[in-house]
Amino acid sequence: MRRHHPNISRIVIHAALFALLAVWMIPEVYMLSIGLRTPDQAFDATLMAWPLTLDNFATVIRDNAIVSFFLNSLIVTLATVAIVVACSTLFAFACAVLHLRWSLVLYATLLTTLMVPLASLVLPLAILLKTFGWVNTYAGVIFPYAALGAPFAVVVLKAFMEDSPKELFEAARVDGCNAWQTYWHVALPLIRPALVFVGIWQFIVTWNEFFLALIILTRNEVKTLTIVPMQYSGLYMANPGALFAVLTLIALPLILLYVVVQRAFVRGLLAGAVKG
């Protein structure tokens, strides 16, 4: 059938995908739609309610310090991504290119982190950070996030470096590079697709992290975007329009960022898998 009617099957498949996507997008659309409603439509049990109004967005932006939460998220996330990228590339380079003695043992040890659920770490981490005096500081979440995120990055980057032609690193050595120069001039540019992938993924994970942020960041000055919806759900109990306007504003930055970078993200994912 498919051979004889390629167009019909293509249309059917596209229609099915669009239908599924429509169902899948209901929560996102619903979120946006409630935020765009007038107070008396807010409790209508419909996906869309007309007319749309931007009043709620105007209200919440005027009344709240969303921007400062956004900046907190941005600082925490960027710092975490930077640390993860730096630590994991160095570590992966030492394992995959320098073949340092014991590095594989350390690698295996590091990997166990991937299997440690955060639930079993929050309690001791909270106490440790209290000892450091890092509760309610950016550092209090940045470093644990980096420690939890680095192992996955190391796995991806190490595999990627091992799949890179070994002769490139030898050529660098013949050209007079020491280990650091080889890392900087050859290894880093070489693994850029994987690096982009790892960076974006770490960004998403960190931006959306909830558990540790909930425990460590209790003061408004340091809270990240992810943990503020709770306090708004109490504040705007009677005004879902305003609440969902806030939620939309909280969700939007990362969604927009992903739409912008998704091409590079998927390319990194594909490139990482090409060699196997």
């Binding site: 002769e167 490139l168 030898e170 050529a171 013949v174 007079g176 540019p189």
Partner: peptide, 18 residues
Amino acid sequence: PPDRGIAMVFQSYALYPH
């Protein structure tokens, strides 16, 4: 290698792709 005054041409050429 660089101190030996040698130069090497690799089988895969090993040109830095970037």
